[in-house]
């Protein structure tokens, strides 16, 4: 896998939002990540750590403040207008809440064909002939094409969104919390469907989630984000050997049906505040059990560690 050229590459991408009262919030700082064709990379992190901002940067719905986003050898970070539309064809997204992705007044068939039609891949009548096949691809009956969105369940809608994303044959599909809004049994089905489609069509996924258990079940590699930084990156089967203190804490916090005797969840009840977003040093330092005095002054970079992970931690260097 390492020999292949990455299909999507983030080089020091950052995004700063300006709030209404003029303060600057750095949602993503200096993120670098490579995604190879045919793999699924998972991005995990707690609420507000910048995962969804990364997704919106990759889809180019929002403009990055700095850095390069390279898709199939081409920098798409500053594309605009018609060129941007060509980029949209190569990147599709599946959202957290399937209900809000559908215009309440357009039928399922229309929704499914819109992508093909407006990207100029097919005419409407050609595309409408494909609808049955597309629905069957995601294990849905072809009759659903005539329904309205509110007549379908959340799981069915999410499948339709996936079918639409796959139908355009994008180079990368972003799954932003794609299963979080579904209940657990449906979550499992959708995950299985995603894995089957990935194999059948050789798709590349970027799977964003807050649930480590879900992400590791589908992802080949996992990037852990904290406060706008990617703090660790590793193969998902090496997750147990995580080295970054934040990843370790995150791992301990994963719920499981088996451990009813578990003790207190080790991560303190402290969210990512602006304060630690703006610190000069490592943003995790205030919560870190292994913090060194040096952590206050220097922000670590993502580096190869001894065991072959990539981690951003001074204590590991």
């Amino acid at each position: 896998m390492d020999k292949k050229e990455p299909i999507l590459e983030l080089n020091h991408v950052s995004k700063t939002f300006t709030t209404e009262d003029g303060r600057e919030v750095r949602a993503v700082k200096d993120a670098s990540l490579a995604v190879y064709p045919g793999e699924c990379i998972g991005i995990v992190g707690e609420s507000g750590c910048g995962k969804s901002t990364i997704a919106r940067l990759i889809t180019r719905i929002i403009d990055p403040s700095g850095g390069e986003i390279i898709l199939a050898g081409e920098n798409i970070a500053d594309k605009k207008g018609r060129k941007l539309k060509a980029v949209y064809r190569d990147i599709q997204m599946v959202y957290q809440d399937p209900y809000s992705v559908f215009s309440p007044r357009a039928g399922i068939g229309t929704f499914l064909t819109d992508g093909l039609v407006y990207h100029g891949i097919m005419t409407r009548s050609e595309a409408l002939k494909e609808v049955g096949k597309l629905l069957e691809m995601v294990d849905l009956p072809a009759e659903l094409a005539d329904r309205l969105p509110h007549q379908l369940s959340g799981g069915q809608l999410q499948r339709v969104v996936i079918a639409r994303a796959v139908s355009i044959r994008p180079k990368v599909i972003l799954l932003d919390e794609a299963t979080s809004a579904l209940d657990v049994s449906v979550q499992k089905q959708v995950l299985n469907l995603l894995m089957r489609l990935k194999k059948e069509y050789n798709l590349t996924y970027v799977f964003i989630g807050h649930d480590l258990a879900v992400v590791r079940s589908i992802a080949d590699r996992i990037a852990v984000m904290y406060a706008g930084l990617i703090v660790e990156e590793m193969d998902s089967d090496e997750l147990e050997q995580a080295e970054h203190p934040y990843t370790k804490k995150l791992l301990q916090s994963v719920f499981s049906v088996n451990d009813r005797n578990r003790k207190v969840i080790p991560i303190e009840n402290m969210s990512v505040s602006d304060e630690n977003l703006q610190t000069l040093g490592c943003p995790f330092q205030p919560r870190c059990p292994e913090a060194l005095p040096a952590c206050k002054n220097a922000c670590p970079m993502l580096r190869m560690t001894k065991s072959g992970h990539k981690a951003a931690c001074l204590a590991l260097e």
């Binding site: 889809t59 719905i61 539309k85 949209y88 064809r89 990147i91 599709q92 997204m93 959202y95 809440d97 809000s100 992705v101 559908f102 215009s103 819109d114 992508g115 039609v117 407006y118 990207h119 100029g120 969104v161 639409r164 355009i168």
Partner: peptide, 12 residues
């Protein structure tokens, strides 16, 4: 609404 964003990704 996300469907506007989705429409944009869908080439509109």
């Amino acid at each position: 609404n996300p469907y506007v964003e989705e429409g944009r990704l869908g080439g509109m």
